[in-house]
């Protein structure tokens, strides 16, 4: 399937690269681009937009490294922005000087992965934490301790993500360890925490958390905020998304322009376009994730604008995943394989 997508993407890229003016080729995650917003962009600018999709950051990186993609806008997550800048794959767009940059929530201006606001405009962001059945749990979940070192009451009722990507960082947040540590002692501490949690775990699974919470198979489960919101709306059970005091893990996708983009000027127009509240609100309504533009709430669907899942309390830090060194990644893999051996 992936190969097929790549092949399709390659042919489209070749077909469109020949004609320059008036076009924009966007390469984005699957089902992650609002058709309504694109239609508005096309109408306002007269630029014809083509969209191709990928399913992992790694795929995107591999394509950009291979070169000659014909893409003008790509949407990497924060840690891959860092890698791509380091590898010289993204071009300086001067996004910080664009007319609409001032609309960014101050919290998201000059983020750590683009500290001089040279490359990317914000697209969507969200958090990973724990969703729980408040009625069955009987109280509010306020600390990661309740997830990693749970009470006997939830024995066999805790669901954990299937891959270490986010939950390993949650453990780091809880233990006060840095992300991507290359220190074996840090890895041992995380290992011990996971081993202690395992007897309470019903399943390591990143897919069925909403169903399992709804039918009571699990009482607390790793979840993403947008997905948890869907569970609450669909199931009509007492599912809450916790913002534990220690912090939550965040992800942040941005719109960036690769080096060698044929339609770089159009790409810049697009970056400026999505920093306007009424435009990015269309995107949020479609994908149901938060954006970083102040004032966009006014244009968002009411249920989305008011959802607790999307509101991070001021006191709760959001810590974004980083691109780990091979040595650090190896420690993470080893801890996880040992846990499930």
């Amino acid at each position: 399937m992936k190969k097929l997508l790549i092949a399709l993407a390659a042919t489209t890229a070749m077909a469109t690269a020949a004609q320059a003016e008036g076009e924009l080729n966007i390469y984005n995650w699957v089902e992650y681009t609002s058709p309504e917003m694109i239609a508005k962009f096309e109408k306002e600018t007269g630029i014809k937009v083509t969209i191709d999709t990928y399913d992992t950051n790694e795929t995107l990186l591999a394509k950009l490294k291979a070169g000659g993609t014909g893409y003008d806008v790509v949407m990497p997550s924060q840690h891959f922005v860092e890698i791509m800048v380091k590898e010289g794959l993204l071009q300086d767009t001067g996004v910080g000087q664009m007319a609409n940059y001032k609309n960014l929530d101050p919290r998201w201006q000059k983020p750590s992965w683009d500290p001089e606001a040279k490359y990317c405009a914000p697209w969507q962001w969200g958090t990973a934490s724990v969703a729980y059945r408040k009625d069955l749990y009987g109280k509010e979940l306020t600390s990661l301790k309740e997830f990693f070192e749970p009470d006997e009451a939830v024995k066999g009722k805790v669901q954990v993500f299937k891959s270490p990507d986010e939950v390993y960082n949650m453990a780091n947040i809880y233990l006060g360890k840095p992300f991507c540590s290359e220190d074996a002692e840090d890895a041992k501490a995380v290992q011990a925490l996971f081993e202690g949690q395992k007897p309470f775990v019903v399943t390591y699974n990143s897919e069925n958390q909403n169903d399992n919470l709804a039918n009571g198979t699990s009482i607390m489960a790793n979840n993403w905020n947008g997905f948890s919101m869907r569970a609450r709306m669909d199931s009509k059970t007492d599912i809450h998304y916790a913002y534990p005091k220690e912090g939550v893990v965040g992800w942040f996708d941005s719109a960036c322009v690769p080096v060698g983009a044929k339609n770089a000027e159009n790409a810049k127009k697009f970056l400026d376009f999505i920093m306007k509240p009424e435009n990015i609100a269309l995107q949020s309504n479609y994908a149901r994730y938060s954006n970083a533009i102040a004032g966009s709430e006014a244009f968002m669907d009411k249920d989305l604008a008011e959802a607790d899942e999307l509101k991070v309390p001021e006191s709760v830090p959001v810590k974004f995943g980083q691109a780990c060194s091979p040595a650090a990644q190896k420690l993470i893999d080893r801890v996880w394989t040992k846990l499930l051996q």
């Binding site: 299937k162 270490p164 399943t203 390591y204 699974n205 893999d333 996880w336 394989t337 499930l340 051996q341």
Partner: peptide
């Protein structure tokens, strides 16, 4: 529930994660 890895899941883990 994926609490214990099998050969299939080990291979998947190496490629995906």
């Amino acid at each position: 529930g994926g609490k214990r890895m099998m050969l299939g899941s080990l291979i998947y883990f190496q490629f995906a994660t």
